[in-house]
Design a protein around this nucleic acid. Sequence first.
DNA 1: GTATCCATGTAACCAGTTACATGATTGC
DNA 2: GCAATCATGTAACTGGTTACATGGATAC
Lengths: 196, 196
Amino acid sequence: MPKINKTKYAILGILNLKPSSGYDIKKYCDLSFSHYWNENFGSIYPMLKRMEMEGLVNKKTEQNEGKPSRIIYSITEKGKSEFYEWMLTPTEEKSTRRERLLKLAFANPREENNREIIMEMFERQKAVIQQKLDEYLQIENDIAMDDPLTETNGISLRVIALRCLIAESRAQIQWCEESVEAIKNMKSKSKNGRTS
Amino acid sequence: MPKINKTKYAILGILNLKPSSGYDIKKYCDLSFSHYWNENFGSIYPMLKRMEMEGLVNKKTEQNEGKPSRIIYSITEKGKSEFYEWMLTPTEEKSTRRERLLKLAFANPREENNREIIMEMFERQKAVIQQKLDEYLQIENDIAMDDPLTETNGISLRVIALRCLIAESRAQIQWCEESVEAIKNMKSKSKNGRTS
DNA sequence: GTATCCATGTAACCAGTTACATGATTGC
DNA sequence: GCAATCATGTAACTGGTTACATGGATAC
């Protein structure tokens, strides 16, 4: 299965909300889902051109006196159908490179003095994750504050997306704690037990 | 902060265990941590050359009669110190592209008929995650079976690494379920409540 | 008058993947 | 004889990031 350029879908998704310029798209990304998605001008502008040639979007130059002219793209029917198809495709988030786990795999707890290093590793990792978690919780709080709709009309999808990151972070923190305990036990056991 | 080539550290980590050829390194990756790390020959061989020039590894050609000759690399002191430095650096696993969450962000639950699609999305995502989870659990089981040391001497780091993936998957599944519930409630509320 | 924002783009680069080329050996 | 494995490598490509170039408008 080939790697597919997802910038296309991000753009389609935003244009499906409303016609926008490349600049708008970038702004929207930064503002609305910076914690789990990123786009750069270097990807957006060339992709928009490509998408126009593929008939996924329509182009319209907006001439504004005074202000610089903007190129507004809108999604076509073809673009919409491609977008909805993508939306319903189950996402396989390939984690081919998880640095944290790789590091762990290289640690060797059989050697006595290494255990301290490994426990230190976990503590440091935990601190990084905790910091992220605090950040997410802060944002969750902010959203609830400035969007009273969430109370009367249920929670927003922005919050739901954020809660995935929150749930994952919490799971990771717990995993760090459990792992430290497991390594501690390993240590005490090898003292009066056997050593390979 | 610039993106750093992590292939280097993966190689250092493996060579720190024992001197190996490029081929060995690839095999080790596939065998030992395929679920969270991947390397290709296209990265390994050029990197080994570069690392030799940087003095991180030593090269030794092994001439075997009959068998094809192998180039065995071993880690140097400089390589070791760079490796341990990396090991203790807290890992910031940037999730700049979480397709699942992006999809969610584009879903609009305010429109009645969209809710069905969103719930369907969650169900499909959940199924994908569940499949992964089952896979992980199977491997965890396999490791425990063929490695009796884990019982007497505590659990291996291979299992601990795996348990991170397991914990994350479980958190994600729970998140899917909670989200579906939240959207259901949103729906019933908007029926006898207000609609924007 | 200068820093920041609006706005569009290109070029260069890096990481990582895939495909290809080569050739020897082993197992069926 | 043929497929699979051992073994090393290169070339081409894709996805994504960063830096640069340009120029007008706005805010202080």
